[in-house]
Nucleic acid binder design. Structure first.
Length: 645
RNA sequence: GCCUCCUUAGCUCAGUGGUAGAGCAGCUCACUCGUAAUGAGCAGGUCGAGGGUUCAACUCCCUUGGGAGGCUCCA
C-alpha cells in the first residue's frame, strides 16, 4: 500500500501501482470525467501512469494551467495525426502547447499548405477525436528511437533525439501516430470536443534563421463547444480594441507609404494626447530633480563608433548621411545616450553633484526589419521618454530603487495594473556577446536583483535578454490579443562611461568613473499610446481626452444658444465641439458616444430658458442639468481626481 | 529579412473570365425633433502599381508597393 497526500492535507492509502485516474474515479465519477492531468510529487504526469511510492497528488482539471497544457499538447499530437493522414510523408518538428492553444511545426515537403487546408485538418481532427483514441506511453532506448524515426524519414525528430540522453526517451502513441514526447497527455481524445485550426505561419527550425523554415500550424481546442465560441468572441472583441483600428477610427494617427513604412504621422487628436503625456511627465520629472535637455536628431558617425553602437547595429541602421564635406558622415540618432554623455562631459563634475539625472523626450530612428513593424508598437521613428542617471557606484542601488518607485508611481496614476516586471540577465553560455568586465556585470546583475527585491517588486528573471552593455529591468504589458510589449526599462551601464571617458572628482580629489543608468517609463510615446488605446478601447481618462465635451442642440432652433455655451467652455479651456447637424437627438448621442467624447451636453428649450446644459456622461447616461460654469468646475475637479500629482 | 494570407468608394465588406455593388460616412432637400441610428435624393472607384496570358482580366500568371498573423530581430 502507498500513502497519497491530497492538496488539503488529507492522506489516503491505495494499492501500489494505482493511477491518478483510478483515484479520481474513487473520489467521484464526475471528477474522473473532468480531470486531465496530475501532479505527482511535483512532476506533472499522465493520469494513467501508475503511482508506486508515497506521493503528494494534485489532480488538474481544465481550470488549471497544467490541465489545459495536457489538453492542448494532446491536441497537437492529434493534429499531427490528422496532418499525416491527409498528407503522408509530412515531416514533423516540434508541437507544443502554448498559452492559448498549441501549434505543430511541420515540413510538408513539396506541398505548401494554404488556408483552405486548415478546414481539412480541422475536420480530420474531429473525425479522429470522435474515435476516442487512447494516448499510450512507452519508454525506449535512444537507439530504438533513432531507428524508428530514421526509418520513417523524420529527420527533425532524429536530430532532436540525437541531442537527448539515453534512458530519458519516451514515445506517445494515439491511433496511427507516434511521437517523441515527454508528455504528459490525456488518457484519450475523448474530452477534445471543440476544435479550431487558426492560422499558418513560417517558423525557422529550432528558431535559427539560418535553418529551414517550417510551416507552423496554430490551433486551439476545448472540452466544450461553448468555450470555443466564447474564445472566438473574445478574439473578435480584441480585434475591436486594436489600437490600429481605433487610431484610425478616432483619427489619432496614420501611416503613409509615401512617407515610409513604420513612420507614424500623428494627427491633431493623437498629437494632443502625446503632448499631454509629455507635460504630465515633465512636471513629475522636475519634482524629482531631473534636468531636461534637448539634442539634435543626428550625430556624427564617430559618436556611435565611440559608443560601440555602430559596430553592433550599424549595418542594420538607417545608413550614414554624407555631407558636402569629404569623408564626413552623420547618422539619424538611434538612441540619445551618446549625446547625453557629451553633455555630461561639457562640464566638470564633483562627487557632490551626483547623481545627475538628465532627461529628454528624444526622437530616435531605427531601421527595424520590415516584417517586425507593427502599428505604433514597433516603428522606425519614435520618441523615448529617455533619461540617464550618472551616479557614483555607491549610489547605484538607491538610484535604481528610486526609478522603480517612479515607474510604479506613474503606472499607478494611469491605472496601469497589468504589467509584469522582468529582470534580463546575460546568457551564461554566450558571455562573449556582451561587452564590459565580468566583475562589473556581476555587480550590476546583483544590484538589479537586490534593488527589485528591496522594493518588493515581483519579478521574473530571464537569461539571455540583457542589452549588450548591461542587465536591465523591464516593465512589460500585454496588448489586446496577449502579445507582450516592453514599456519602461531600467538598465545599468558601465560601458558608456568607459567609452566616453566620463569622470567626476571624488572627495579624494582623484578622477573617478561614474556608472550610468538608462531608463524610460513609457518606453516610447508611440508604444505607450498604443497600449493606452488598447487598455481603454479609446475611452481615455478625462485629462487625456483631446476633446472633453460636445454640445448637442435638440434642434437647429437652439444652435445659437449652443454656440454661446461653446464659446464659454472653450474660453475656460474645456475643449468642446458642437454637433449642429439637423439630426434627431438620439442619433447625435449615438454618433458622439461612438467618438468616445467624455461628456455630451444636450441643450433645448429647457436649457436655454434656465441658461444651463444637460450633462450626459459617456457610457453612463444622464447626469442632470448644470450651469456652464458649474460644468467647467466639475470637469476640472474630475481631472484633478485623476491626476493629483 | 523569411513563411502564409490579404489588398475593390473615406470606412466595413460583396463580387472566381463578359465593360463595377451594398451598408455606414459625405453632400442636397424635407422634417425641427428630449438621451445610442428620421426619410428621400445625389455624388463618390483608371478594383494598390507595373507587366503578361486572353477576343475579353477586379477575377489567371509574374514583378512590385502596402497591410495582417507568425518566425527571426529588438540598442
Amino acid at each position: 500500500m502507498i500513502k497519497v497526500t491530497f492538496p488539503d492535507g488529507s492522506v489516503k492509502e491505495y494499492k501500489e501501482g494505482i493511477t491518478s485516474l483510478e483515484i479520481a474515479e474513487q473520489i467521484s465519477p464526475r471528477l474522473a470525467k473532468e480531470v486531465l492531468s496530475a501532479t505527482v510529487n511535483n512532476e506533472v504526469i499522465d493520469l494513467t501512469r501508475p503511482i508506486t511510492t508515497d506521493s503528494k497528488l494534485v489532480l488538474h482539471k481544465w481550470d488549471d494551467a497544467e490541465g489545459k497544457h495536457a489538453f492542448w499538447h494532446s491536441s497537437a499530437h492529434l493534429m499531427a495525426e490528422a496532418i499525416e493522414a491527409l498528407w503522408p510523408g509530412t515531416k514533423f518538428g516540434i508541437g507544443p502547447a502554448i498559452e492559448n492553444g498549441f501549434y505543430y511545426d511541420i515540413d510538408p515537403g513539396d506541398k505548401s499548405l494554404n488556408e483552405s487546408d486548415l478546414l481539412l485538418i480541422e475536420n480530420k481532427m474531429k473525425e479522429l477525436a470522435s474515435k476516442d483514441l487512447t494516448y499510450s506511453r512507452r519508454n525506449v532506448s535512444k537507439k530504438e528511437a533513432l531507428n524508428i524515426f530514421s526509418t520513417k524519414g523524420d529527420e527533425y525528430k532524429v536530430e532532436l533525439i540525437t541531442d537527448l540522453q539515453d534512458g530519458t526517451i519516451s514515445l506517445y502513441t494515439q491511433g496511427n501516430f507516434t511521437d517523441l514526447c515527454r508528455g504528459p497527455h490525456l488518457p484519450s481524445t475523448e474530452p477534445i470536443k471543440a476544435i479550431k485550426i487558426l492560422s499558418l505561419a513560417g517558423a525557422y527550425w529550432r528558431g535559427d534563421e539560418k535553418r529551414k523554415m517550417l510551416t507552423r500550424v496554430y490551433g486551439i481546442t476545448f472540452p466544450k463547444q461553448k468555450l470555443l465560441d466564447e474564445y472566438l468572441v473574445f478574439l473578435e472583441e480584441a480585434r475591436r480594441r486594436d489600437h490600429r483600428r481605433i487610431g484610425k477610427e478616432l483619427e489619432l494617427f496614420t501611416f503613409s507609404p509615401k512617407v515610409g513604412m513604420g513612420l507614424p504621422l500623428w494627427m491633431p487628436k493623437g498629437s494632443d494626447i502625446r503632448s499631454k503625456l509629455i507635460e504630465f511627465l515633465t512636471v513629475i520629472l522636475r519634482k524629482r530633480g531631473y534636468k531636461i535637455v534637448a539634442t539634435p536628431h543626428i550625430g556624427n558617425v564617430n559618436l556611435y563608433k565611440t559608443s560601440g553602437h555602430f559596430e553592433k547595429y550599424g549595418a542594420d541602421s538607417f545608413q550614414p548621411i554624407s555631407t558636402p564635406q569629404e569623408g564626413e558622415q552623420f547618422m539619424l540618432k538611434p538612441m540619445n545616450c551618446p549625446h547625453h554623455c557629451e553633455i555630461y562631459n561639457a562640464t566638470p563634475h564633483s562627487y557632490k553633484d551626483l547623481p545627475l539625472r538628465m532627461a529628454e523626450f528624444g526622437t530616435v530612428y531605427r531601421y527595424e526589419q520590415s516584417g517586425e513593424l507593427h502599428g505604433l508598437t514597433r516603428v522606425r521613428s519614435f520618441t523615448q521618454d529617455d533619461a540617464h542617471h550618472f551616479c557614483r557606484h555607491d549610489q547605484l542601488r538607491e538610484e535604481f530603487k528610486s526609478i522603480i518607485d517612479l515607474v510604479l508611481y506613474v503606472f499607478r496614476i494611469l491605472n496601469f495594473n497589468e504589467y509584469t516586471a522582468q529582470i534580463s540577465l546575460r546568457d551564461p553560455d554566450n558571455k562573449e556577446k556582451y561587452i564590459g568586465s565580468e566583475e562589473n556585470w556581476e555587480k550590476a546583475e546583483r544590484d538589479i536583483i537586490e534593488a527589485a527585491a528591496e522594493k518588493n517588486l515581483e519579478t521574473v528573471i530571464v537569461t539571455g535578454e540583457a542589452a549588450f552593455y548591461g542587465p536591465k529591468l523591464d516593465f512589460m504589458v500585454k496588448d489586446a490579443i496577449g502579445r507582450k510589449w516592453q514599456l519602461g526599462t531600467i538598465q545599468v551601464d558601465y560601458n558608456l562611461p568607459e567609452r566616453f571617458d566620463l569622470t567626476y572628482n571624488g572627495s579624494d580629489n582623484q578622477k573617478h568613473r561614474p556608472v550610468m543608468i538608462h531608463r524610460t517609463i513609457f518606453g516610447s510615446l508611440e508604444r505607450f499610446v498604443a497600449v493606452l488605446i488598447e487598455n481603454t478601447s479609446g475611452k481615455f481618462p478625462l485629462w487625456l481626452a483631446p476633446e472633453k465635451a460636445v454640445i448637442l442642440p435638440i434642434s437647429e432652433k437652439f444652435n445659437d444658444y449652443a454656440r454661446k455655451v461653446l464659446e464659454l467652455l472653450n474660453n475656460s479651456d474645456i475643449c468642446t465641439l458642437i454637433d449642429e447637424r439637423s439630426e434627431k437627438i438620439g442619433k447625435k448621442i449615438r454618433d458622439n458616444e461612438l467618438k468616445r467624447i467624455p461628456f455630451l451636453l444636450i441643450v433645448g428649450e429647457k436649457e436655454e430658458e434656465s441658461g444651463s446644459v444637460s450633462v450626459r456622461k459617456q457610457g453612463d447616461g444622464d447626469k442632470g442639468a448644470m450651469k456652464p460654469d458649474e460644468f467647467v468646475n466639475f470637469v476640472n475637479e474630475e481631472i484633478k481626481k485623476e491626476i493629483d500629482l
